[in-house]
Design a binder for these strands. Structure first.
Length: 819
RNA sequence: GCCGCGGUGGUGGAAUGGUAUACACGCAGGACUUAAAAUCCUGUGAUCGAAUAGAUCGUGAGCGUUCGAGUCGCUCCCGCGGCACCA
């Protein structure tokens, strides 16, 4: 009988429909089986599914099928990140309403996703732009406001003067506004913030903790971003007037070498000078005014361009260093940031590269300090000052031979005791600015009343729906303010005419808690079902992109800790494990882009090879974390593998031939090892090596196609099934006449001791491979192996009557060591 | 500058301190074919060698630990990613 060729197109669609009908992927939240929550970052509704989505989702899907076969109650939901700027952009460009554009995209993308044949249960779909979702954004916001976690404040922001709007960093193109081309400046703007800094300490990862498994890259990156620094605020009296300037430093030990003070242009002291509240003979008010204004007008781009060159102006005042009574000139420079520390820096040009540059630029004295080797506080009196010639700065060279931390601590204690300063902790992390002057987002549920100020919208009035009728084309005022009917309300407190807040929430607010909404997307009594959350979260494994290290995942952790405080969840971290994917590049090695013409369209490759091949290829081409080009040749090779699998199973069609099968012991052990390897590799998301193991097994099997029983052949099919769900299902049901889906079958167990009848033992002399021995399992005893090796000419000639020592790792390796 | 991750054949990539280069691609030779495609078989780190005899070298460079190092330690070099006038 002639074999049927492998034609996936003929059955993939059939199984997709059958699985849907049989509800093989339905999740039951009330099941008593152990839960396993697989989460993939919810995709943005960009409009078309590209190969990157396939890559991102295939690995989790393999895991999902695997976990299900291992008896877990697998929750693998899906949703869309549907608010945001691109929708507004596209809408302006194509003259479609953002909502219509987004909803249409969701429809197409969902259809495409379903073609992938994933185990995603679509009944839990959550869409962030729907009122049933964002009303709970508003609820959370109000609750945060009530607890002081959401507040209105001023911050330096990217500002476009022409459009009168704040711009996000990603809306700036070469320092210009993306809408009108105006140069972006920094401006203090009043906006809404979330007090993420209140959680700074709790957000720091404990590197020694094993309770969660997140990439080091993320943990270190976030810790770095939070940037906790312990130091001291040293007070310096300004001579001739009653004022103290406070400077933050982590290295008070360098203070012997301080020769100047620099203030940020926004510093309070400068304001006092400009207002004429303080003055000295040396103060040039107009020069200071000019400098401060120039600094204010500087764009991000200008500041970056000037990274190396220091600018500044002298304030006309001097401050006193209590340590050595030195009179230090007070300068103003924009390299000092008002947002960090105290906005004032003590200049130690002998030991800090920036201070050095500044001092050189303005002819300020540069002193290098040497501290006594004992590192004791007494070192203070033994200080030795040396003039530093021009040269490379060595940041800690002056403390050679002593423990810097110890010295710093001692000097800090000394200064604190003397009352010259106080211990301080600073963070790099800033509060999260969440106001966006855009249309396509969650309306901020606040009302501005002329009498009562800011008044929260009462909970019973939620949701504040986003009005459909607005002018969202750029006009210089928030789009929501163009709908007067929506904008004008009465104050909930006093009833007089008031206005709604016309801003919307950053879309990262939406994605900061969506995995909880998945648990019950239509829940009406709160953002999520607390009981269910306690049962089904934390997420067991979270797949996503590396670009979310400092944004999304940090916000999500912050929300989790907030919910924990509110008693809504039990855990501190929302995801036990995090895996970050790489990128599939175009065949030319460049990032796929329409303009480069190197885009791989999933629909086309699926039409050519079938879903199984595409899935298998995406798992095999590189590790999940990897980034590399698409290869038409490699996918053809993977297709070859599936064809060979198909062919070998055709042997089982005929009962007459299978009766003559004789199970081969080696093949059975090899199969067991393959099952073990695939099992481990899927657990560790190392799909490429799992597939390699199956390929290896097939290579062996093909040498002896009648060497495996039907039962064992089915086991191979089962371990392949998470990767190639269609082909395996087709064989499972049409050749093996199974009635229930292979995806509902039980994952094969590894049985037996897996010791081969015969092993090959490498023999080394002095660590160099000289020969190999074939030994049966009964002969792997040390003495036996040694005597066998000694009969081997290849080994003998290197031993040559010399004395030797023997290292033998049973069944693994034999090493003779001479000399 | 700081932090993180890497550097292995022609390519993508494998290797609990134990035969480096699994698996795949590519390439070469062969079988089948009138021919091609497809498929199958064989070979494929480098150098020397007639050799499928054997030897030497070989995982960015150099030291070290070890019977044995791609793997562990130290000192560098290079690449990628993140952060950055952060005091």
């Amino acid at each position: 009988m002639k074999n049927t060729p492998y034609q996936p197109q003929q059955f993939e669609k059939k199984w997709q429909e059958q699985w849907k009908k049989d509800k093989i992927n339905v999740f039951n939240p009330d099941s008593n089986k152990k839960k396993y929550y697989i989460l993939v970052e919810l995709p943005y509704t960009s409009g078309d599914l590209h190969i990157g989505h396939w890559f991102t989702f295939t690995h989790p899907d393999v895991l999902s099928r695997f976990k299900k076969m291992n008896g877990y109650n697998v929750f693998f939901p899906m949703g869309y990140d549907a608010f945001g700027l691109p929708a507004e952009n596209a809408a302006i460009k194509r003259k479609i309403h953002p909502k219509d554009w987004t909803m249409k995209n969701i429809e197409t993308m969902t259809k495409q996703f379903q073609q992938m044949g994933t185990m995603i249960d679509w009944d839990w779909m959550t869409i962030t732009c729907l009122p049933e979702y964002y009303r709970w954004n508003q609820w959370i916001f109000l609750k945060m406001y009530e607890k002081g976690l959401a507040f209105r404040g001023k911050a330096l922001s990217n500002w476009c003067e022409r459009d009168q709007t704040v711009l996000a960093n990603e809306n700036i193109e070469n320092g210009k506004c993306w809408r009108c081309g105006e140069t972006v400046v920094q401006k203090e703007v009043e906006q809404w913030f979330l007090k993420i800094t209140a959680y700074a300490d709790r957000l720091i990862w404990d590197e020694n903790s094993n309770s969660v498994d997140w990439p080091k890259q993320v943990q270190a990156g976030q810790n770095n971003w939070i940037g906790k620094k312990e130091g001291i605020n040293i007070k310096y009296k300004v001579s001739s007037i009653k004022y103290e300037i406070e400077c933050f430093t982590t290295r008070p030990d360098t203070n012997f070498g301080a020769t100047f003070i620099v203030l940020a242009p926004e510093h309070e002291f400068i304001q006092k000078i400009l207002k004429g509240e303080i003055k000295s003979k040396e103060t040039n008010v107009s020069a200071i005014k000019k400098y401060v204004e120039a600094a204010k007008a500087k764009s991000e781009l200008d500041r970056m361009a000037e990274t190396k060159k220091k600018t500044g102006v002298f304030s006309g005042f001097y401050a006193i260093n209590d340590l050595n009574d030195r009179r230090m000139p007070v300068w103003i420079s924009d390299f000092v940031l008002i947002g960090f520390g105290t906005g004032a820096v003590v200049g130690v040009p002998g030991h800090d590269i920036r201070d050095f540059e500044f001092a050189k630029e303005f002819g300020i004295e540069i002193i290098r300090v040497v501290v006594g080797k004992d590192g004791n506080t007494s070192a203070i009196t033994k200080k030795e000052q040396v003039q530093e010639k021009e040269g490379k700065m060595i940041n800690s060279g002056f403390l050679d031979g002593i423990d810097i931390l110890e010295a710093t601590k001692k000097i800090m204690n000394y200064m604190v005791e003397k009352g010259w300063g106080k211990r301080t902790v600073t963070y790099h992390l800033r509060d999260w600015s969440i106001s966006r002057q855009r249309y396509w987002g969650t309306p901020v549920p606040m009302i501005h009343c002329p009498d009562d100020g800011i008044v929260p919208v009462p909970e019973k009035n939620l949701p504040i729906e986003l009005p459909y009728e607005v002018d969202f084309t750029p006009h210089g005022k928030p789009p929501l303010a163009t709908n007067e009917k929506w904008l004008n309300v009465r104050c909930p407190k006093c009833g007089i005419p008031a206005k709604r807040d016309a801003e919307t929430l950053d879309t990262f607010f939406d994605s900061a808690w969506y995995w909880l909404r998945y648990l019950n997307p239509h829940h009406k009594n709160g953002p999520f079902d607390i009981g269910r959350a306690k049962k089904l979260t934390p997420v067991d494994i979270y797949f996503g992109g590396a670009e979310h290290t400092l944004g999304h995942t940090l916000y999500a952790r912050f929300f989790t800790k907030t919910f924990k405080n509110w008693g809504m969840v039990d855990h501190d971290e929302f995801a036990l494990k995090r895996i970050q994917h790489g990128i599939v590049l175009g065949p030319d090695g460049n990032k796929m882009s329409k303009s480069k013409g190197n885009v791989i369209n999933p629909d086309n490759v699926v039409a050519e090879y079938g879903s199984d091949t595409v899935r298998l290829y995406l798992c095999f081409m590189m590790p999940y974390e990897g980034t590399g080009p698409w290869s038409d040749q490699t996918i053809a090779g993977v297709n070859r593998f599936l064809t060979r699998v198909w062919e070998i199973f055709q042997n089982f069609i005929n009962e007459k031939t299978t009766r003559s099968f004789v199970e081969n012991k080696h093949l059975v052990i090899k199969l067991q090892k393959t099952i073990r390897k695939v099992t481990e590799d899927i657990e560790n998301i190392k799909m490429n090596t799992a597939i390699a193991a199956m390929m290896e097994f097939l290579n062996d099997w093909e040498r002896n196609p009648a060497g495996l029983s039907k039962e064992n052949a089915k086991k191979f099919l089962q371990v392949l099934s998470p990767f190639a769900p269609f082909l395996t299902e087709e064989i499972w049901q049409s050749i093996f006449k199974e009635k229930k889906s292979i995806h509902l079958s039980i994952w094969p167990k590894v049985e037996g001791d897996l010791v081969e009848e015969e092993v090959i033992i490498p023999v080394q002399v002095n660590g160099r491979l000289r020969s190999t021995l074939r030994v049966t399992r009964l002969e792997i005893g040390k003495d036996n192996v040694i005597s066998k090796a000694l009969k081997d000419e290849k080994v003998k000639k290197y031993l040559d009557g010399k004395k030797y020592k023997v290292i033998y790792v049973p069944g693994k390796i034999l090493n003779f060591v001479t000399n």
